[in-house]
């Protein structure tokens, strides 16, 4: 009787798409944040650069990253489609704005989402694009295996063929693209730091509504689990994660 295309073109199906792509993006935030904590290490970016290399060269992760890009695009396009259709459902608006007790962010997901989309474009142009197009500088690390002391020096393009890590005479040599330098240089610009912090505030408000809303859409609204979902949505996704991300540009600006 039913088929997938009618299911997904129904209002509930469209909500489901928003919900699943949204939750997938939420799960990515955890991974991204955990990885980016390497930025706080005092190692001239060795750990961070290793992590960046791993994330861009390990096949399963590459597959997931394409899923991620498509999720961002689908989530955005669907949001626009749904918003336009919802507008059509009320052609004449009220003279008096309805007072309805709903929370602000639930009514302004579109604005918050737009800010986040702009942020993602800027963010990817800043780092993802430069990294993938080979515009990042290069660095060589030499870690003494016995003492653990690391020295690093910038190298130029001719000294770098590909990412390598080998042991030479008791010294671990790593040659890598230096995304860390790119990142810490970028965050010497105060306005970029402010832009990032504001975008993370938008993320916080987007997730205050979005996370718990996704479970409602999935039909997972049960008096036993609801408080847990709300708790995770608030403390993990709209406070913990945006704070963690916002701390990075601030840290790099102040201490690097």
């Amino acid at each position: 009787m039913s088929n997938f295309s009618s299911a997904f073109s129904s209002t509930l199906g469209r909500k489901l798409v928003m919900c699943l792509t949204g939750l997938f993006l939420c799960s990515f935030l955890i991974v991204h944040l955990a990885g980016n904590f390497q930025l706080f290490k005092n190692d001239d970016g060795l750990a961070f650069n290793q992590y960046a290399h791993f994330m861009t060269h390990f096949t399963p992760i590459k597959v997931v990253s394409y899923l991620l890009y498509s999720s961002i695009i689908i989530h955005t396009i669907w949001a626009i489609v749904i918003t336009l259709m919802n507008r059509k459902a009320r052609p004449i608006s009220y003279a008096i704005k309805p007072k309805d007790g709903s929370i602000w962010s639930s009514r302004n997901m579109g604005i918050l989402g737009t800010i986040l989309f702009v942020f993602i474009v800027v963010h990817m142009a800043n780092f993802w694009y430069k990294y993938h197009s080979g515009e990042t500088p290069y660095i060589e690390y030499r870690t003494d295996i016995n003492s653990g002391a690391t020295m690093s020096k910038s190298i130029n393009e001719s000294e770098f063929t590909e990412y390598v890590s080998f042991v030479d005479n008791g010294v671990q040599v790593t040659k890598s693209e230096d995304l860390y330098k790119e990142v810490s240089n970028a965050f010497q610009q105060w306005w970029l730091v402010i832009f990032y912090v504001l975008a993370m505030a938008a993320l916080a408000f987007h997730l205050v509504h979005g996370f718990q809303s996704a479970f409602q859409t999935l039909g997972w609204n049960h008096h036993k689990y609801r408080p847990l979902i709300k708790f995770i949505g608030l403390w993990v996704f709209s406070i913990g994660i945006p704070l963690g991300f916002a701390a990075m540009p601030i840290y790099l600006f102040l201490f690097k």
């Binding site: 209002t11 509930l12 469209r14 909500k15 489901l16 749904i82 259709m85 919802n86 059509k88 459902a89 009320r90 309805p98 309805d100 007790g101 709903s102 929370i103 639930s106 009514r107 997901m109 509504h209 809303s213 409602q216 859409t217 999935l218 039909g219 997972w220 609204n221 049960h222 008096h223």
Partner: peptide
């Protein structure tokens, strides 16, 4: 031609019979 729910829960607040949005989750 009704719109689709974005979970603001304004309906629950205004329903004269206090129908709960848990119904919407059940419908989903």
């Amino acid at each position: 031609g009704f719109g689709s729910c974005t979970n603001t829960y304004a309906c629950e607040a205004q329903c004269p019979k206090e129908i709960k949005v848990t119904n919407i989750a059940r419908m989903n």
